[in-house]
Each structure stands twice: as structure tokens, then as C-alpha cells.
Amino acid sequence: MYKVKVYVTLKESVLDPQGSAVKGALHSLKFNEVEDVRIGKFLELTLEKGNYDLDAKIKEMCEKLLTNTVIEDYRYEVEEVVAQ
């Protein structure tokens, strides 16, 4: 099996209201070294192995449903795991 970790974040050019609020909260806690906070989503997919192009499949899932490419970017990591 594959364990696929997908990270979704708002594009750099898109203002992240949640991130801005959290940055403000961190500053008020005196964490003044914080320059920016971006909040995103983490999805963990478990895929069965098969005769398919894994990268193409993940890309298709990300662009069709998992992210909205108008405002979001994504990246992913693949880990091979042994079924238990």
C-alpha cells in the first residue's frame, strides 16, 4: 500500500485571514520572531498498489477535488507501507 500525505495551503498571493489572526495572537504572546503564518490542510490517503501511474493519479485527485486551484497550492509525499 501507499500512504500519501497531501498538504494544501492557500496560494502565496491569496490573503489567509486565519493565518493573519494566528500571527497576531502569537505576537501578543510575545513570539515576535514570527514573520508569517499560513494555515492549511493535511490529508492522508491510503492507496492500494496497482498497475497505475501513482503521481498522475494523485495529481488528478488533488486538482479535481482535494484542492481548489484558484486559491490553493498542494504538495504531497508518498510512503510505501506493508499491509498489516
Partner: peptide, 11 residues
């Protein structure tokens, strides 16, 4: 329609 929605600025 073009575009997307974000959380309200005020959250």
C-alpha cells in the same frame, strides 16, 4: 462562474 471563496476577513 470564475473565482473562489475564502473565509470572511473577520473570520
Amino acid at each position: 462562474l470564475p473565482g473562489a471563496m475564502r473565509r470572511n476577513e473577520s473570520l
